[in-house]
């Protein structure tokens, strides 16, 4: 009956057409069907309801019920969340597949719980990055020397700096022109974002590398959650698990198409060989892991071990 319908407002930053935006929309549909209309998941994409960095306080304080975030967005607030995104550390698909429901996932769930939100699902987002440039391709680790590059975040910038690059932070809308004109020499983004943000229009070269893994997770307000009926909770949990599972092939397909599409649009894309990956990892990984362990002295090591064990 309509009067018993529960509303779950879910805020996220992806455009509706992005493969993660679609995953969340499918989750909403599934919940609606499975609950026979008893739970209405109202999705607000593209920062319509709240800016990316307002999502967490909004959910924790109950301004709306749920939000999605990319793991690395937690930054210094919850440095442990960056564990899966350390360079070349967790990019094997077989391992990533085992992440939802794993010990490592529950360690992170527990940390989120302490930050006053309850995690609902982990959605596989990417395991490949693309390093883009105009003047010359970036293939060998030496190619980073002196490059002004826009990195992913402060933590992984340590690795770029170790390779001799000069990482800079620049607001997103300025990046295309900065890359085109040479304010920046190189860009770094998720492989499929290279297509959706049309990097091929202003960058000649790209190196696709298994550089980092990113997960999008959806979390809810814990008080709202405990106010739900057990059957409503189980509808949401089952829908979350199903969405987690179906996301693996979908994300892989998007990434697979990305390289072809970038090449069709005229970008010279180099797919990194395992040997090259090993030589990049040798330089970039340790400084980032060290910085990670410094920021997460209590839980960092245990978390990395749990990821290793997958």
């Amino acid at each position: 009956r309509a009067q018993e319908a529960v509303t779950m407002r879910l805020s996220h930053q992806y455009p509706p057409a992005h493969h993660m935006g679609q995953a969340i929309a499918r989750f909403a549909e599934r919940v609606k069907t499975d609950s026979q209309g008893g739970i209405n998941v109202q999705v607000f994409p593209a920062e319509q309801l709240a800016k990316a960095n307002e999502n967490f306080p909004g959910v924790a304080r109950g301004a709306f019920e749920a939000a999605a975030a990319v793991n690395i967005q937690w930054g210094n607030t919850l440095p442990e969340m960056s564990a899966v995104s350390l360079p070349y550390l967790f990019t094997d698909l077989a391992k990533i597949r085992k992440f939802p429901g794993s010990d490592a996932a529950s360690q992170l769930d527990a940390l989120l719980q302490k930050r006053a939100v309850r995690n609902l699902m982990w959605l596989y987002t990417t395991r490949q990055a693309i390093f883009t440039s105009n003047a010359r391709p970036i293939v060998k680790i030496e190619d980073f020397k002196g490059l002004k590059i826009r990195g992913l975040n402060a933590l992984t910038d340590h690795g770029l700096a170790a390779a001799g690059a000069a990482p800079s932070a620049m607001p997103g809308p300025d990046v295309p022109q900065a890359l085109q004109s040479g304010v920046l020499d190189a860009g770094l983004t998720d492989l499929s974002a290279g297509v959706s943000r049309r990097f091929y229009e202003f960058q000649k070269f790209g190196t696709a590398a298994p550089y980092f893994c990113a997960l999008t997770h959806v979390y809810v307000n814990p008080r709202w959650w405990s106010g739900l009926k057990p059957e409503q909770q189980s509808v949401l949990t089952r829908a979350a698990q199903a969405t987690e599972q179906e996301q693996f092939p979908l994300t892989e397909a998007v990434a697979g198409k990305a390289v072809t599409e970038l090449r069709e649009k005229g970008m010279t894309v180099h797919q990194q060989t395992p040997e090259e990956a090993a030589s990049w990892a040798a330089v970039m990984q340790k400084p980032v892991v060290d910085a990670f362990l410094r920021q997460a002295p209590e839980n960092g090591r245990r978390l990395l071990d749990a990821l290793q064990a997958l």
Partner: peptide, 13 residues
């Protein structure tokens, strides 16, 4: 008060 309680940090360490 909320930010202090949860320990939200900026991007600068």
């Amino acid at each position: 008060a909320f930010s202090r309680m949860i320990g939200i940090m900026t991007e600068v360490e």
